[in-house]
Computed example of a mutant assay.
Amino acid sequence: MEGLKVSKLNLTIYIHPSKSNQVSQAVLRELSSMLFTYSEIADGVVLAYDINSLDTCAKILPGVFPYVGVKLKVNFLLFSPKPNTLLEGKVVKITQEFIHVVVLGFSAAVIAEKDIREEFVCKMKKGQEVYASRSNKRHVIKVGTMIRFSVKSFDEEILHVYGSLIPDHTGSIYWLDKNLEVVSRTGRSEKKRRIEPERIILEQDTVDGELSNLDISQKRTNSKKQKHRQES
């Protein structure tokens, strides 16, 4: 899935003087407070972190309450969906107007009817609303379906994604992956059929050495005449 990235940053964590004897614990608490919130410094929602190095020489900042500045290098795993990137999520609700999706278990996404391609039509099936493809009856999006969709925009404040099912390569992940596999197998079979005649010709050329097409034709004619004499 797109929208995930790892970012390496050099940070300075400011710790209250009362925590100066527990620097490591204070740093971990500060980093943990960043989880599942949008960080402007990292340009993404922090999903996880890993501290590479921690400077033990903390610098005391001047002021009424002299905070301690601790420098460290951190690897952040970020959720940073950009427009036109592809995300994957689980459908949790379907109405005539919207498809509601949860991404990575924490971010809500919504796909409006206007952003769903005309191939899909909303209808009732077994007592629940689904979006079914007109061109392929097996391509159905319902509650519980894992779908792949394109990002239109991302609200960083409430971690809300606005998505789209307009591109052809979006929809039910199960159907898309299976369909691509079938297309891939078909393509390989057609390629094999196209290659086989050439392979046979090459083998014939290898066996017959440098025989010309005229020589090969003459041999076939002589063989047919000999067979006809034997039958007579």
Rank of each mutant, 00 (worst) to 15 (best):
F120Y: 13
G69I: 05
I200V: 13
D115C: 03
V74G: 00
L47N: 00
Q25F: 12
I60Q: 01
S7N: 05
V23M: 03
V140Y: 02
K5Q: 07
V101D: 02
L78E: 05
I116S: 06
S172L: 01
K93C: 09
Y162T: 08
I99H: 12
A26P: 05
A26E: 00
V68Q: 12
F36I: 02
R138H: 15
E198N: 12
K8L: 12
G3H: 12
E30Q: 07
K125P: 06
K5P: 09
G144F: 00
M124S: 13
E88C: 14
R29T: 01
D155I: 13
R194C: 03
G89E: 00
Y131E: 07
Q226R: 15
S232G: 13
S184C: 12
S107M: 03
K93I: 04
G89W: 08
G171E: 00
R148F: 02
L72H: 02
T186C: 11
R194P: 04
F154E: 06
S223I: 00
G187W: 08
E113R: 14
E157H: 02
H139S: 09
H169D: 04
N84P: 07
S24P: 09
Y174Q: 07
I41T: 11
S32G: 02
D55W: 04
F76L: 05
G89N: 08
N179Y: 06
M34D: 05
T221D: 08
I158A: 09
H160W: 09
V64A: 04
L4K: 05
